[in-house]
Simulated scan of single mutants.
Amino acid sequence: MVKPITIGIAGGTGAGKTSLSNAIYKELGGQKNCVHLTHDHYYKDQSHKTMEERSKTNFDHPDSLETELLVQHLQELKEGKIAILPTYDFKTHARTPVTTMVHPRNIIIVEGILIFTHPGLCKELDMKVFVDADSDTRVLRRIRRDTVERGRTLDSIMAQYESHVKPMHEQWVEPSKKHADVIINSEVGTSQKIAIDMLTNHLRVAGECT
């Protein structure tokens, strides 16, 4: 096995990180050649708190995530070892007993809004991509995702956006853009298609994907 190539994909909530990550994953052969690590799986367990306390947690602050564990798993995969990943339930704000065994692959994709805010994680990434989008576009995408996938109400989504998401984006996410090697505007279809082709061609060669 060749030395894995790691790519980090960051950006604000609803910017299009998951769509880009999934497109690259699919173009490079999926599970055959790639591992897709999502920072969202590493939220700290909240099961010791009441549901009311859990709902007040600032999930958009770096301290809400166990990033050191993500770094550990990334290092294990880069060393050719198996990593055991946690699973997080967004409806209960708690880790579940279910874990996922992930085998090392030539390409490792790491996705999350705050991954460029952690120096140790940045050092593990060979390529850093920031996905950008207008704030109105991002909040509409977040509403669609959280109502459909996470069973949340519009009122709770907007309250969280105003109290945590927007200020944390301005404090942490937007400034982390300076660490990116590539910035993509997900609202421009042709720009995103060109970026996907460029990234996958580079990763395919570097990671010796077949």
Results as ranks from 00 to 15, higher is better:
3 K>R: 15
3 K>M: 11
7 I>K: 10
9 I>H: 12
10 A>Y: 00
11 G>K: 00
23 A>W: 09
24 I>T: 04
26 K>S: 13
26 K>A: 14
27 E>T: 10
27 E>P: 01
32 K>L: 00
33 N>K: 03
34 C>S: 02
34 C>V: 00
35 V>W: 05
35 V>F: 05
38 T>I: 11
38 T>S: 15
41 H>P: 00
43 Y>I: 07
45 D>G: 10
46 Q>L: 14
47 S>L: 05
48 H>P: 00
52 E>N: 12
52 E>V: 11
54 R>L: 04
55 S>V: 06
56 K>F: 01
58 N>W: 09
62 P>G: 11
66 E>C: 13
69 L>P: 01
71 V>D: 01
72 Q>I: 07
73 H>I: 01
73 H>A: 02
74 L>C: 08
75 Q>W: 01
76 E>F: 05
77 L>F: 09
81 K>I: 07
82 I>Q: 15
82 I>T: 15
83 A>S: 14
92 T>F: 05
93 H>F: 10
93 H>S: 01
98 V>Y: 11
106 N>D: 14
109 I>L: 15
111 E>T: 07
117 T>W: 01
117 T>S: 09
119 P>H: 11
124 E>S: 05
125 L>T: 05
127 M>E: 13
133 A>S: 15
133 A>L: 12
134 D>E: 08
137 T>K: 02
137 T>S: 04
144 R>Y: 06
150 R>W: 08
152 R>M: 03
152 R>G: 04
154 L>Y: 12
155 D>A: 12
157 I>A: 01
167 P>D: 04
168 M>F: 01
172 W>Y: 14
177 K>Q: 12
182 V>S: 06
184 I>K: 07
190 T>G: 09
192 Q>D: 04
195 A>P: 06
199 L>E: 03
204 R>D: 02
207 G>Q: 09
209 C>W: 05
209 C>F: 08
